[in-house]
């Protein structure tokens, strides 16, 4: 049951109190009250009026896929895919695009949106005047980005299947992988958003995201790079996402995948933790 009387009066949902029970042991109480869901509801309310923005996020990766189908794929016949098999260029690129679009969507959501709410609209100041704590806000916002990313991933996977690019039942696992990639990048993005001071500094975000998008073996195999560069590329978070999606899409599994998942999990946890710390430091003074 709920540990304190005040909590019983405040909280009716058993899931929330269960979550709090787990996290309360690690975190000081004012940081987290198990109400992150309130932010999800808020986001859903906001986007119910801006559905076009939402839908446009589905379309963008599809445009890329189309470009590869009609254009790039004609320039490159075959590439060496996971497990050393040769495959069509489009099949090679498609799963990587899924991971990349999960990253792009999450970063966009967690930097632009969060920045404006944080600096200009003072949305979070208002929220922290309620029982909500900074970690509620962090998890709520990250959670929304993940939900959105998940939706995009499902749509993308559907189109991939339609193009005949998902050849193994393991491809279904692309969806949870996309969710994990979304979570990790949303969490990191949100930490960064709290450091930004001017909208002009969004270029710094682009500066991190765009090279990652282009260089994380999204468009060509790792072997293209000279050996020292290969190690550098393998440090990029998106590389691990791409490795996971590319392997799963054709059903070539590998022990190294555990490492990839672990990398992303650590990133996600660290991001969520530091976001809450930053928000607490900036807003609860």
């Amino acid at each position: 049951m709920a540990p304190t009387t005040s909590a019983t009066t405040r909280d009716a949902t058993p899931t929330a109190s269960a979550r709090r029970g787990l996290l309360l042991r690690m975190l000081p109480a004012p940081l987290y009250t198990g109400r992150a869901r309130a932010l999800l509801e808020r986001s859903a309310m906001v986007y119910s009026r801006a559905w076009l923005v939402f839908v446009s996020g589905v379309v963008e990766p599809l445009l890329y896929l189309l470009a590869f189908q009609v254009g790039f794929g004609k320039l490159v016949e075959e590439v060496t895919g996971p497990g050393g098999e040769t495959m069509s260029y489009v099949a090679f690129v498609a799963p990587a695009l899924l991971a990349a679009s999960a990253m792009n969507g999450a970063v966009f959501d967690s930097t632009f949106n969060v920045f404006f709410k944080f600096r200009y609209n003072k949305t979070y100041d208002a929220m922290l005047a309620t029982p909500l704590g900074p970690l509620d806000i962090a998890l709520g916002e990250i959670g929304w980005a993940v939900l959105r990313g998940g939706l995009y991933a499902v749509a993308f996977l559907g189109v991939m299947a339609g193009f005949g690019l998902a050849t193994s039942p393991w491809a279904l696992l692309l969806v949870p992988v996309a969710l994990l990639v979304s979570f990790a990048f949303a969490a990191i993005g949100m930490v960064c958003a709290t450091f930004l001071k001017s909208p002009a500094q969004f270029d710094f975000v682009q500066l991190a995201v765009m090279p990652m998008f282009l260089l994380s073996t999204t468009f060509y195999p790792l072997s293209v790079y000279p050996e020292p560069l290969q190690y550098a590329v393998q440090c990029l978070p998106l590389y691990h996402g791409v490795e996971l999606t590319r392997g799963l899409a054709v059903g070539v599994l590998d022990v190294s995948m555990i490492g990839h998942v672990a990398y992303l999990l650590v990133l996600a946890a660290a991001g969520a933790y530091f976001t809450a710390k930053r928000l607490a430091g900036l807003l609860l003074r």
């Binding site: 790039f72 320039l75 490159v76 590439v79 260029y89 765009m210 090279p211 282009l214 260089l215 468009f219 060509y220 293209v224 790079y225």
Partner: peptide
């Protein structure tokens, strides 16, 4: 960056 990634990286294929 695009030139490096697409011109050289993708271009190598």
């Amino acid at each position: 960056l695009f030139l490096a990634a697409m011109g050289l990286g993708f271009g190598s294929q």
